[in-house]
Write a protein that binds this DNA or RNA. Structure first.
Lengths: 344, 344
DNA sequence: CTGAAAGCGCTTACAG
DNA sequence: CTGAAAGCGCTTACAG
């Protein structure tokens, strides 16, 4: 019985590699130990019918004794395995990433996909991470910000879906469109009597973001003369510093539209330290719709992204690309939505 | 040339299964299309030496034409593949989860592990998710809260590491110990003149949490007579409601120690709506050390968890269990640390 | 520089 | 209820 397992079995400790000096037990080792064939081990381990209770137990005991765990590769090769999604974000510490990831993970679970999460933010090893990820998943989804460009080229054979890659991209992916929500926000601000709005953009002075331009235009279209200021980076700290300057002026603004929620939080902080009441003295709004905006006081008015819808489109694209479709409908758009809360 | 591929090749559309009606191309299909052997395809696809430039290009073109992507199972079976961690959390929307996940993902990347993320919070499918995850990873890490108990039993063959499973657990894992940090917080509050502290615990009235008990004891030990109140759930909303009642009393508390940061945020919100200034009128502290506490105004004093250290221990345990070690040192402890910010 | 052989660990028919 | 055979898709030696 089980002769072949005898030949290559654990009685041969040299042919190892693992730190423990002992190679992992295979189905053949268990079969040998229990005195049955490998098929019987499969039946026992996978709770399949057609095996006696005694045999099952004997096999299970042998498996436990040998710390046997089926190889996911061996099994996957024959069963096909669950499809796997690789989700790459540029910085998991940015609250945007986990909210996106949460939505994708949920949707993926519903569709029977697993998702591997990778944070590319750590410098240096980006290429290695990508290679390793591509070898493990069926489709890569990237929410990459500035990293996106390089990746479009490197993507190689594994299909790549880009999230919010910007207007220029022709890559399959999901793009965000804040235009309508910005109009709604401008209309709201005008309706409540805003006179001197400021748009706090993120990018460098000479390259105002599309989002910032749209905010300016929407306000101007309603007869206001908004001022445009820039933070050197889209962090709460930078935003707070700029806001602190702006609200110290004689002609104090009565509204600040921030590039995103994180920056809006920085603005709120600056207002508090300046002794200003939000929204009575000044109104503040952000973009993204992060959960964090509901946890602060005052709660943050924002242009929210429907992450669940982004996730829905993402999985649809993943399924299509995974099946080898390279055809139409591979670019989706999700619109922001105005969510009025306390801050504006 | 490539006879065998011809026999089972794509010229046989019936034997399919995929929605597109065409099975995925294998290395043999590419070999046939390029008129070479499968080894040559391997060399071209994997950028290996020992192949002429022309051949490489021809193979690559054939691969592209057939949308060939190597099977991760076929490859993994022979190369072994990267080790894979399955991280299961009870709710990704709770800011604690992503911070933990971020730390684990980073540490894992450093160690060459991939991590698959699963949110068990969605009712019903928990068992299916577990099965599917166990089949895909080498080690499962669970940050499960109340779910932990059931899982210890179900864990089956795949090693399971439990995070913050509580004092009762003898399972391999990383536990958190706030005791020392609670002492530091109590000492600080006394030093700045706190007289009437309130401990805002999460659990039901009849079962005060260990954390809440420790807070009470630490304050009492310093001559104070803290009051203990409970929120029915550890959400900002519930905490806010309870806090609103407490601070309305005649003998208003001058400090509230919340069960965690999220609840502390709710307390901050209640204070703001009541017109109280933090920390001048009342001090507020939480537990966890979430990033969100640095983004609110006032910034939140907290007992912080060093997520990076939790992640470090977790990976060490994962490596040990993955190698089949079942010995000593499989329980680790990480202590909280007092982080003084504006709110206290 | 290229190819024929062997084998990674498992499951799925098929015989008994 | 149990086992012998075939094969999933790939890479790693080994020959030429």
């Amino acid at each position: 019985m089980a002769e072949s397992a005898q030949l290559t079995g654990p009685g041969d400790p040299e042919r190892s590699g693992s730190p423990a000096g002992r190679r992992r037990a295979t189905i053949l080792d268990v079969a040998a130990a229990a005195g049955v064939s490998r098929q019987t081990v499969t039946r026992a381990v996978n709770d399949m019918p057609g095996i006696s209770a005694e045999t099952r137990q004997r096999v299970l005991e042998a498996a436990t004794a040998l710390a046997y765990r089926p190889s996911r590769f061996g099994r996957g090769l024959v069963t096909g395995g669950d499809p796997q999604l690789g989700l790459v974000v540029s910085d998991l510490r940015n609250p945007y990433s986990p909210e996106l990831a949460a939505a994708v993970v949920r949707r993926a679970a519903d569709e029977g996909w697993s998702v591997s999460l990778v944070d590319i933010g750590l410098a240096g090893s980006a290429d290695r991470l990508l290679r390793s990820l591509q070898a493990q998943v069926d489709v890569v989804v990237g929410y990459l910000g500035e990293w996106a460009l390089g990746w479009e080229r490197r993507s190689g054979a594994t299909p790549l879906i880009l999230l919010d890659a910007g207007e220029g991209s022709e890559h399959p992916g999901v793009n965000l469109d804040p235009a309508a929500a910005i109009e709604d926000l401008a209309a709201h601000l005008v309706a409540v009597g805003t006179r001197r709005p400021v748009v706090l953009d993120a990018s460098a002075p000479h390259e105002t973001s599309g989002r910032g331009l749209a905010m300016m235009a929407a306000l101007e279209r309603r007869g206001l003369a908004p001022e445009l200021v820039h933070a050197s980076a889209s962090t709460p700290e930078h935003a707070s510093a700029v806001a602190a300057q702006v609200i110290r002026r004689a002609a104090r603004p009565d509204a600040i539209l921030a590039f995103n929620d994180l920056m809006a939080l920085g603005v709120l902080s600056a207002c508090r330290h300046a002794g200003l009441h939000v929204p009575d003295d000044i109104r503040v709004a952000g973009v993204d719709g992060l959960t964090i905006g509901t946890l602060v006081a005052p709660t943050l008015t924002t242009l929210a992204v429907d992450f669940d819808e982004v996730a829905r489109h993402t999985l649809e694209l993943a399924v299509a690309l995974g099946d080898g479709d390279t055809d139409a409908g591979l670019q989706r758009v999700v619109s922001h939505r105005l969510v009025l809360r306390e801050s504006a």
